[in-house]
Each structure stands twice: as structure tokens, then as C-alpha cells.
């Protein structure tokens, strides 16, 4: 029996979000829905990264007054994933903005949001 920790729950949430996000991106036809699925996927990646940096019984990686350096270095959670995730959140917002802008442009031209109509391959 595996002991349930908050890290394991983080991995489970990440796996669920990744599966739901990928499935939504692949199987849903509406472009806006696909974009929402992408935000879910990006959330899943974020939580996976943070869960990797988690340390059981650790502390928040902020050096509080009265905490010795040794105690901090042995107990603090990893900081590097937090940096990555912060960047990923920002990149996710900009990607979403670009995707929505392109969806608006294509809607004006084609009058529909169905990916199977708008993004069909063309014979050249």
C-alpha cells in the first residue's frame, strides 16, 4: 500500500489534468474549447513541475528570520521549478491570447468555429 502524500496527490492531479487536456485538444471540435483544453493542459504541466519540487515535511523556500542556513537548505522545497512554472504561466497567457486572436481572425473569414471546417487540409 502506497502512503498517500500531498506530492502523490499532486502527481495524480497532474496526470488527470494532462489526460483531460490532451483529450480535449484532440477530440473537441470547437476552437475555443480547444483553447480552454490547452489552458487545462498547461495547468497540468505546472502542477507536475511544482510537485516534483515538493519535499515531504519541508518549508516554503523563503529564509525567515530565526531560521538557520542548514535547516533552510535541508528542508526548503526546490525553487527552480517555481521559476519554471512562473514562466510557464506567463507563456501560457500569451499563447492563449495569440490563439484567441487567430481564432477571431479565422472566424471573421469563415464564419464558423469548427476546427474540422476551418483547419481542413488543402490540396495544393
Amino acid at each position: 500500500m502506497i502512503e498517500v502524500t500531498i506530492q502523490l496527490l499532486g502527481f495524480i492531479a497532474a496526470a488527470l489534468l494532462l489526460i483531460i487536456g490532451i483529450a480535449g485538444m484532440v477530440f473537441l471540435d470547437n476552437i475555443i474549447k480547444k483553447i480552454i483544453a490547452f489552458t487545462l493542459l498547461s495547468d497540468g504541466v505546472n502542477i507536475l513541475l511544482v510537485a516534483i519540487g515538493y519535499i515531504e515535511g519541508g518549508v516554503v523556500p523563503i529564509l525567515l528570520p530565526g531560521m538557520s542556513t542548514v535547516e533552510f537548505t535541508t528542508h526548503a522545497a526546490l525553487v527552480f521549478p517555481v521559476g519554471i512554472v512562473l514562466t510557464n504561466i506567463v507563456i501560457g497567457v500569451s499563447t492563449t491570447a495569440i490563439l484567441v486572436a487567430l481564432a477571431i481572425m479565422l472566424y471573421r473569414r469563415y464564419g464558423t468555429l469548427k476546427a474540422s471546417v476551418v483547419l481542413k487540409g488543402e490540396r495544393r
Binding site: I22, F38, T95
Partner: peptide
């Protein structure tokens, strides 16, 4: 080119993750 851009952005989302 708008279509190409949308497709590429879409995959950049997945592959970047």
C-alpha cells in the same frame, strides 16, 4: 497563413509543455 499560424501555435502549446 492564419490557418498555418493557428495550427503551429496549437502544437507549440502541446510540445512546449
Amino acid at each position: 497563413s492564419h490557418k498555418a499560424a493557428l495550427k503551429y501555435a496549437y502544437f507549440s502549446a502541446i510540445c512546449g509543455s
